[in-house]
Simulated scan of single mutants.
Amino acid sequence: MKSKKILITKATPGMILARDIIDFSGQMLVAKDTTLTDWIISKLQFYNIHSLVIIINENEEIVKTTPDKEEEIISQDSNLNRIRNTKEFIQFQKEFFNFVEQFHRGMDEVLTHKAPLNVPGLLSTTNKLISTSRNAIHLFDMLNCMRNYDDSTYAHCLNVSLLCNIFGQWIHLPPDELEVLTLSGLFHDIGKLEIPQSIIMKPAKLTDSEYRLMQKHPTLGYELLKDMNIDNRIKNAALMHHERLDGTGYPQKLKGPQIDELAKIVAIADVYDALTSKRIYRDPLCPFEVLHIFEEEGYTKYDPSYLIVFFNQIFQTYVLNTVRLNDGSEGKIIMINKDALGSPVVQIGDRFIDLSKNKSLFIQAII
């Protein structure tokens, strides 16, 4: 068996580890012969693993696991692919990219020429995009179809705005409150437009000085918005969306009651979108993997009353979706376990597998 050392930034799902990965304390993180997934790669990045050794063949080509022909046929007929082929999604995608371009041009004018921000125009265009969907669930499904798009700050802001709108519908906000929440999502990250793109798009880990600069974007966003004639909660969302209930956030290390309520909602939508969207250094994470990340420490950092509603609603939308498990098998979600949202019942052929009772299996991807 031949092997090759690569940077973690070059790791992709399907690669096979040639050596155990050990952390700084001597504990094994991942065993050799493990097939990499988005979840494993993100875990290694979390533990600051900079490189790993993967298996290659005699021609120096990386060995990767691939689905067989039957799996490919199933994937081609997945729920997401069916949605991608609808006229509604084609129109949604067109309007989405048109909005991103409009948002980009508008913010360039604000940053370069100090032009006023056309908030009513942006809200109108956002509502037009939302109107291409039948309801909140349909809008959420169409957003999921775009998760392989390596999004810019502008697209991320639009994603979070749409997620906030969906979230607001789920918690039955009145129309005027829903508008404020939608705009809070749209403008939450505009402080990043003041950060060099070389840092925003850097594929490797940020240096300490780069990370400190990145942490200034909430304050920079607030400074851009503070003198504008908009609801103060929109300004607070830009300033507070990285604050956490336990005081571990930034820039002010605020705690629960000090954080604006809408900023708490934006914070959840922001992290969810960041993890489930493609990035220059990784593919999008599966929502079920994201749930496990939130479950590990999320309830001390994010408002549980919002978090529970968010994930309860999200996972109900995945019933009847085709998924791939970590053993490579594919099937359909037929029931969500209320006490174990991330471990539903999956039908594979004639078998029904309750993932809450089979701890060796988990959902690796929604296809």
Score class of each variant (00 low, 15 high):
299 Y>C: 05
210 E>R: 00
219 T>I: 15
252 Q>M: 13
157 C>H: 03
112 T>L: 15
276 T>Q: 06
242 H>T: 09
22 I>K: 11
225 L>G: 03
266 V>C: 02
327 D>L: 01
33 D>K: 14
127 N>P: 03
23 D>E: 12
249 G>F: 04
200 I>N: 05
96 F>C: 02
141 D>L: 06
259 I>F: 07
306 Y>F: 15
4 K>E: 11
279 R>Q: 14
364 Q>F: 04
235 K>V: 02
147 R>F: 06
17 L>T: 02
276 T>L: 04
16 I>D: 05
168 G>T: 01
108 D>Q: 15
200 I>T: 07
251 P>N: 08
301 K>Y: 09
180 V>W: 00
168 G>N: 05
20 D>C: 10
143 L>K: 07
331 G>E: 05
135 N>T: 07
90 I>Y: 08
87 K>C: 01
106 G>W: 03
29 L>Y: 10
34 T>V: 08
43 K>A: 11
133 S>T: 06
281 Y>E: 10
83 I>C: 02
344 P>C: 05
206 L>S: 10
322 T>G: 09
315 F>T: 01
252 Q>Y: 15
18 A>D: 12
164 C>K: 01
161 S>K: 02
257 P>S: 12
128 K>S: 12
272 Y>S: 07
357 K>P: 00
120 P>D: 08
212 R>E: 14
11 A>R: 02
156 H>Y: 09
363 I>R: 02
272 Y>V: 07
225 L>C: 07
70 E>M: 12
23 D>G: 10
337 N>K: 13
144 N>E: 12
262 L>F: 15
235 K>H: 00
171 I>G: 01
305 S>L: 12
102 Q>F: 15
287 P>D: 09
150 D>A: 11
73 I>K: 13
261 E>I: 13
284 P>C: 04
25 S>K: 15
307 L>E: 07
284 P>Y: 01
235 K>A: 04
53 V>L: 06
204 A>N: 12
148 N>E: 14
13 P>D: 00
203 P>Y: 09
208 D>M: 12
226 K>H: 12
28 M>L: 12
161 S>D: 01
321 N>M: 07
225 L>D: 02
355 L>H: 01
150 D>G: 09
300 T>A: 11
123 L>V: 07
157 C>A: 06
51 S>Q: 13
211 Y>N: 14
137 I>T: 14
